[in-house]
Structure formats: C-alpha cells, structure tokens
C-alpha cells in the first residue's frame, strides 16, 4: 500500500513527534508514505476567513501537484486534512470556484479536477485499510492496564468527512481497544480544545482546556491521545498555565495516538519520540505496562 503524504508545517516543527511516529508506524504496518514534492501551506484555520478564493487556490495547489498515480493523500494534521478535504468539496460543488481556482492554478501550469485525489485522515487509513485483524497480528506490547482517553477534537469528525460519527466518534476508541488498552468513555472527546483562543482570550481558552483535562482526570485516564497538533499543543503546553489559573495540579500526559500505537507495535520510546512532550508520558506508560521499552528519553 502506497499513499501520498502531506505532513504540513506543524509536523515539521512543534509536532515533529507526530511526523516521526507516523513514519515509524507506517514502516511497521507496511504501508508507504510518499511525501509530496514541494507542498505548501494548508491555510491553517485562518486563511479561509481571510480570503476564501485565495485560500482555496493555495490549498488546491497541493492537490494539483499530486501525480496521476497518487490517488490517495494522507494528512495526519487535522487542520491540513480538513482544509484539503474542504477544497476538494468546494471545487466539486461550485463550478465557479472550480473554474476560478483552475484559472489561478494555470498560472503555475497546474490543473485540478475535484475527486481526482481522495484526501484521507491517517486514523481512517489505519482503521479501515489496515484493520483489526492485521493490527492485532502486529501487537508486540499489548497496552493492557493503560487507561487512555481518546480525544478527536473538532476538525477530523466534521460531517462531510464521513468516516466516523460526528457527534460521538468511536474509531480511535475501537483502535485502542484492539491494542488492549482500557479506553475510557471520554465524554468530551469531540469538544473544543480552545484552538487559537489562547492568543485572543486566554480565560476562555483555559476554561476549555480545563474541561478536557478535568474530564480525563475524573475518568481516571492515564493519558490523552490526540490526532491534531493544535489539540496536543493546547493541552500539553498550556497545562501548567491552566493549572495555576485554576489552582489545580494537572499532570496529564498528552501524546499523539500514533506514538502509543508505535509502543504497542514494539517500537521504543525514542523511535516514537515519547519524551518530547512537556508532561512526560514515559513514566506512566512504563509503570502500567511493566516491561518497559529500553530507552525512555524522558
């Protein structure tokens, strides 16, 4: 299995652990990720509200540079995934957008017909294409005894994306059940992480972050699994600030789901970059899983 890969900017910087673990997991699970040559910005969460047409054109370039044999594009970052998907859909539904965007692309000698590339999230790939049976076969380190809170965030499960229940997604829950973890019924799994509110109104953002952390604590989760760099950043990097803001003492490790998946597949902490996070996940994983992988890096 071979897929085109769009890492996006976060995965090259603050969320490098996501990128590294995705590539490591891909190697073990036997699918190939071929990074797009010369990809550009996905517009993140802001560009669409600035100028929709320009945003669409900029994003469409990423779809247009896919080779004809690259039919499926994987984007692990939730914002990248959503924007790429949205662009494809906008172009499919509105002929005016389609022609204007293609006019812009033509300046660079490019062209894109909607539907040409299927944009997919990594979770969908692992859940659907790899599937339960193949995954169970590859388990080296069952996650028995580890209580995980799967956190989906707001972008991956929007209705148009269609691979999981929008209001109460379950695919990551199921995935980690296969891997042997105790998956807590995390009621805020699709609630807001605060997004960029941390820059605008910290009180509002901190309250949103607190709810997510509180619920995880209440359900006695050992750690929270993310699939979005923004979510991971907010929950992890702002955890200390939120703690002092509310006079609490949160110590909740926040990692990407691929990192823990890697551990289950027998990869050591260094390989999946456990230890790069601020609230360290290493100790609790080690404590709960007993036989710990060799290096911790924590």
């Amino acid at each position: 299995m071979k897929y085109a890969y769009y890492p996006g900017c976060s995965l090259e910087a603050g969320s490098a652990a996501y990128d590294v673990s995705v590539r490591a997991v891909a190697k073990v699970l036997g699918f190939e990720l071929e990074e797009l040559d010369d990809w550009n910005c996905c517009g993140a969460t802001e560009y669409f509200s600035q100028d929709e047409l320009v945003a669409t054109s900029v994003i469409a370039r990423n779809l247009a540079i896919c080779r004809p044999d690259q039919k499926e594009l994987i984007a692990p970052c939730a914002a990248c995934f959503l924007n790429l998907k949205k662009t494809d859909q906008l172009m499919a539904e509105h002929s005016e957008v389609r022609s204007k965007v293609n006019e812009a692309l033509a300046a660079g000698g490019l062209h894109y017909d909607p539907g040409q590339v299927r944009v997919r999230h990594l979770l969908d790939l692992i859940y659907t294409d790899i599937g339960e049976a193949a995954l169970r076969e590859k388990i080296k380190q069952p996650l028995t005894g580890l209580r995980v809170a799967p956190y989906y965030g707001c972008q991956v499960v929007r209705p148009m994306n269609g691979f999981d229940n929008t209001e109460y997604p379950m695919k990551m829950d199921e995935l980690f059940t296969w891997l042997g973890a105790e998956v807590v019924d995390y009621p805020v799994k699709a609630h807001c992480c605060g997004g960029h509110m941390t820059q605008i109104s910290e009180g509002a953002a901190y309250e949103l972050i607190r709810r997510l952390l509180d619920s995880a604590v209440e359900h006695e989760a050992d750690l929270i699994l993310c699939m979005c760099p923004m979510c991971q950043l907010n929950l992890d990097a702002y955890q200390a600030l939120v703690s002092s803001y509310f006079q609490k003492n949160f110590q909740m490790p926040i990692i990407f789901f691929t990192q823990l998946l890697g551990v289950a597949l027998g990869l050591d902490f260094e390989t999946v970059k456990i230890g790069k996070e601020i609230v360290s996940a290493g100790p609790v994983i080690k404590a709960k899983l007993g036989a710990a992988p060799s290096q911790t890096g924590a």
């Binding site: 209001e167 009621p187 805020v188 709810r211 509180d214 619920s215 209440e218």
Partner: peptide
Amino acid sequence: SEVTDATR
C-alpha cells in the same frame, strides 16, 4: 446537543 457526565 448532548447528554454527558462531564462535569464543569
């Protein structure tokens, strides 16, 4: 919108 046990 939802029925939950997540307290605030």
